[in-house]
């Protein structure tokens, strides 16, 4: 199930192949064409831009929310259920709601901006604001995921080191920095790895909200790939994109896994 698609993909990437016509062997031509293809190179740029924001912001917000939901208070379970709702909701359906909220003339978001005296935005209808707007959706969807992983880390903390530190007269900050942080770090790294992989692979929300547009201004790798494979039927080119894409993901994951090992030893 996992191996067959891979061998087949590499084989296809070495051919010139439109669905429905005969394939011819072209060697590395697909890759060479990609290296000079502006649209492909731009899509890599969009992917990097998107991934950085879609990793950093949910990581920060998710960690903060985990610290809040780790405190004991009345109705915690209930509020936590509401909080994790976005990550369970169907992304395509959620994207639809956001598309309506983003509408520049009639959307509720511009109305909310106007109530606090801010000028309206073009949101996903302008090349300049489309990616930050999509990031808002991404934050909304995936902050709960980071929260749950970090919350699991906080819940697994032993109480003994804190008691010992209290006896030794450590301050709150010292306890956080010297006990909580190192113990939770492995969980943060797991969340970081997962989030990075998922952000690199983003497709559904972008496809549903703006199709990679306006123009190609929000076309990330996965959207470019989809267009090549299923809109233009360029199977050979698309397969080459898959191979390059996978190489990028593996390289990044290896760096992160290495960081995880370091975090474990530190």
């Amino acid at each position: 199930m996992i191996v067959f698609p891979w061998i087949f993909t590499i084989w296809m990437s070495l051919h010139d192949w439109h669905i429905g016509s005969k394939q011819t062997f072209v060697g590395l031509d697909n890759y060479i064409a990609l290296a000079t293809n502006r649209r492909f190179l731009e899509s890599i740029g969009h992917t990097i831009y998107f991934t950085i924001l879609a990793v950093v912001l949910p990581m920060v917000l998710g960690t903060v929310s985990a610290l809040v939901f780790h405190k004991k208070f009345r109705g915690r379970g209930f509020f936590r259920t509401i909080f994790i709702m976005p990550m369970m909701a169907t992304p395509v359906a959620v994207s639809l709601i956001w598309t309506m909220m983003f509408h520049p003339q009639l959307g509720v978001l511009n109305y909310l901006l106007s109530t606090v005296g801010l000028p309206p935005s073009e949101w996903v209808y302008s090349p300049n604001t489309v990616i930050p707007s999509l990031i808002l959706v991404e934050i909304w969807l995936w902050t709960p995921f980071v929260m749950i992983i970090v919350l699991g880390g906080l819940a697994s903390l032993p109480t003994e080191p804190y008691e010992a530190a209290l006896i030794d007269g450590a301050s709150q900050w010292q306890m956080f920095w010297n006990i909580t942080y190192p113990l939770v770090l492995p969980f943060l790294v797991v969340a970081l790895i997962m989030r990075t992989i998922d952000a690199l692979k983003v497709f559904e929300t972008i496809w549903a909200i703006c199709n990679g547009g306006p123009g190609t201004s929000s076309e990330v790798l996965n959207v470019y790939l989809y267009a090549q494979a299923f809109a233009y039927n360029q199977v050979g080119t698309a397969s080459a994109v898959v191979v390059v894409f996978f190489a990028i993901i593996v390289a990044l994951s290896l760096i992160l896994l290495w960081a995880r090992q370091k975090a474990k030893w530190a």
């Binding site: 936590r80 994790i84 992983i149 919350l151 699991g152």
Partner: peptide, 27 residues
Amino acid sequence: IVVMLPVILLTIVIQREIVQGLSAGGV
């Protein structure tokens, strides 16, 4: 709403187990 109703209901029913299961698998 029609599309996401089943998963929302499932989430409400087993939210505690979801949180535990995800954070147990997370490490």
